[in-house]
Computed example of a mutant assay.
Amino acid sequence: MPKTYRLFISHSWKYGDAYDKMIKFLDEQGISYYDHSVPQGDPIHTNGTDRQLREAIDAKIKGCSGVIILAGVYSSYSKWINEEIKISRDYGKSIIAVEPWASEKTSAVVKSAADRIVGWNGKSLANAIRELF
């Protein structure tokens, strides 16, 4: 029976297409996983306080096998990425940074926090998950 990974996939719903592509990578590579990400439809995104969102993220990361963060340049300016990195470190969770395809600028914040940096392809992501988580 294949291992099921419990993944927290960090993302901004403003850039939901990148999240969707990472999900597609996982599915195409045959990774069995449970998505610990805070769902887009969760009202905490739009109606909750920062504290409530932080608590929800903390609970999701606490129970996951590892964290995947897209290392796009927008990540450097997101307070939530920084919180997710801090929470991940507090729980000793490994972080995989995924560099967006054909991007010339990436987030130094995310890459310096990462245990592994992979390119924008499913095979690299799947291999890193299997090795780290």
Rank of each mutant, 00 (worst) to 15 (best):
P2S: 15
K3I: 15
L7Q: 02
L7F: 01
F8M: 09
F8P: 06
I9Q: 06
S10L: 03
H11C: 13
K14L: 13
K14R: 10
Y15P: 02
Y15Q: 11
G16A: 13
Y19T: 03
Y19V: 04
Y19N: 02
I23C: 04
F25C: 08
F25P: 04
D27L: 15
D27I: 15
E28V: 07
Q29D: 09
Y33C: 05
S37E: 10
V38K: 03
V38H: 03
G41Y: 13
P43T: 10
I44R: 10
I44E: 01
H45T: 01
N47Q: 15
N47W: 09
N47E: 15
N47D: 15
G48F: 05
R51F: 14
R54P: 09
E55M: 14
A56C: 12
A56E: 14
D58G: 13
D58V: 14
A59I: 07
K62S: 10
K62T: 10
G63V: 15
S65H: 08
S65T: 11
S65I: 05
S65E: 10
V67Q: 02
I68K: 01
A71D: 04
S75E: 08
S76Q: 04
Y77M: 06
Y77A: 07
K79Y: 08
K79H: 06
W80T: 07
W80A: 05
N82R: 15
E83S: 14
E83T: 13
I87P: 07
G92C: 06
G92H: 03
S94R: 10
S94H: 12
I96A: 00
I96V: 05
E99P: 05
K105H: 06
K105A: 02
K105P: 00
T106E: 02
A108C: 08
A108D: 09
K111Q: 07
K111A: 02
K111F: 03
S112V: 03
A113E: 04
D115L: 01
R116F: 01
I117K: 01
V118R: 04
V118G: 00
G119W: 01
G119Y: 02
W120D: 01
N121I: 00
G122A: 00
G122H: 01
K123I: 12
K123F: 10
L125F: 04
A126L: 10
A126D: 10
N127A: 11
N127M: 10
R130A: 12
R130T: 12
E131D: 15
L132W: 04
F133T: 05
F133N: 06
